[in-house]
C-alpha cells in the first residue's frame, strides 16, 4: 500500500507539479523559457541577470533611457549585491539600453 501511495505521489508530482507525502508538500516549478533579443552584450546579460531572476524581469519593463538602464545595473550591483564584474556590468547596461531603451 505504501509503495502504491508513493508511486501515486510521483505520478502527481510529474503531472501537476505537486506532491503531498505524509507531512511534506513539494512542488516543481515549470521551466523558464524566456530569452533576450540578440545583440552585443546579450550573452553577459543572459548569464549575469539569470543568477538572481528570469529574463522577463527585463523584457516586461517599459522602454527606459540609457541613464535608466545604467541606473538599474548599478542598483543590481550596489544595492542587490549582484556578483557581476565591472566590465560585464558596463556591457550589460549598454546592451539593455540599446535593445530595451528608448530611441
Amino acid at each position: 500500500m505504501r509503495s502504491i501511495a508513493a508511486a501515486l505521489a510521483l505520478l502527481l508530482l510529474a503531472i501537476t507539479g505537486v506532491a503531498v507525502a505524509g507531512e511534506t508538500v513539494t512542488i516543481t516549478l515549470p521551466p523558464d523559457g524566456v530569452t533576450l533579443k540578440p545583440g552585443a552584450g546579450m550573452e553577459q546579460a543572459a548569464v549575469s541577470c539569470r543568477l538572481c531572476h528570469s529574463l522577463d524581469y527585463i523584457t516586461t519593463q517599459p522602454a527606459g533611457g540609457a541613464a535608466q538602464w545604467h541606473g538599474v545595473v548599478t542598483k543590481m550591483l550596489k544595492i542587490y549585491g549582484a556578483p557581476i564584474a565591472e566590465p560585464d556590468a558596463k556591457a550589460i547596461a549598454e546592451y539593455l539600453a540599446s535593445q530595451y531603451g528608448t530611441r
Binding site: A6, A9, L10, L13, A14, I15, T16, G17, A19, T26, I27, T28, L29, P30, P31
Partner: peptide, 14 residues
C-alpha cells in the same frame, strides 16, 4: 522522486 521529476523537467504546465 522530486529529483527524478525535476531532472526530466516535468511538473507544472507550459
Amino acid at each position: 522522486l522530486t529529483l527524478v521529476a525535476g531532472g526530466l523537467g516535468f511538473g507544472g504546465g507550459l
